[in-house]
């Protein structure tokens, strides 16, 4: 099953390498990984998307906890949460008809065209990973030139938090 794990990490040199190394060393999957500082400059927040059976996920959270620089973590997928991913996608858009179709499609997905040339559109879409997958699927007709995805960021709904 797919899990989204949020981690508060001491912002020390090498601490990210430790997290990534753990996954490589123990043969766990990383589907996506995002990391950036928080409002507290001494800590980074990671969002990790992984999959595995319950036993594997239990080991992943336990092993992450064991890393000295991991301050706190939370398996977001265990309760209500919001997840978002950002995608920038560059597509060929040459004929007038073609350009209209791409634009319509972007509108449906609430994407924004953020760069235009005579031959291309670059579109920004934000949403769940599923939504971004669906957008790529919908654009299959138009030839996709380049795709950049940020990886998932997530946060728990309601009162639940992952803070110090």
């Amino acid at each position: 099953m797919r899990h989204i794990i949020s981690v508060l990490l001491e912002n020390e040199p090498g601490s990210l390498a430790r997290v990534v190394g753990l996954f490589a060393q123990r043969g766990y999957n990383i589907d996506s990984l995002t990391v950036a500082p928080t409002e507290d400059a001494t800590m980074s927040r990671l969002t990790l998307v992984t999959h595995g059976n319950d036993q594997v996920i239990e080991q992943i959270t336990k092993q992450l906890h064991k890393l000295i620089e991991v301050v706190k973590l939370q398996d977001l997928s265990e309760s209500a949460h919001v997840e978002r991913e950002l995608m920038l996608i560059k597509v060929k858009a040459t004929s007038g008809e073609h350009r209209d179709e791409v634009k319509r499609c972007a509108d449906i997905f609430r994407g924004q065209i953020i760069d235009v040339t005579a031959k291309t559109y670059t579109i920004q879409v934000v949403g769940t990973s599923d939504k971004l997958d669906a957008f790529i699927e919908a654009l299959k007709g138009a030839s996709i030139i380049e795709v950049v995805r940020s990886g998932v960021s997530g946060i728990a709904r309601g009162e639940k938090t992952l803070t110090l």
Binding site: G14, A17, R18, G21, Q25, I68
Partner: peptide, 11 residues
Amino acid sequence: LGISRPIVKHN
């Protein structure tokens, strides 16, 4: 630090 990372409690 890189070499020893998988075989230490911490470095």
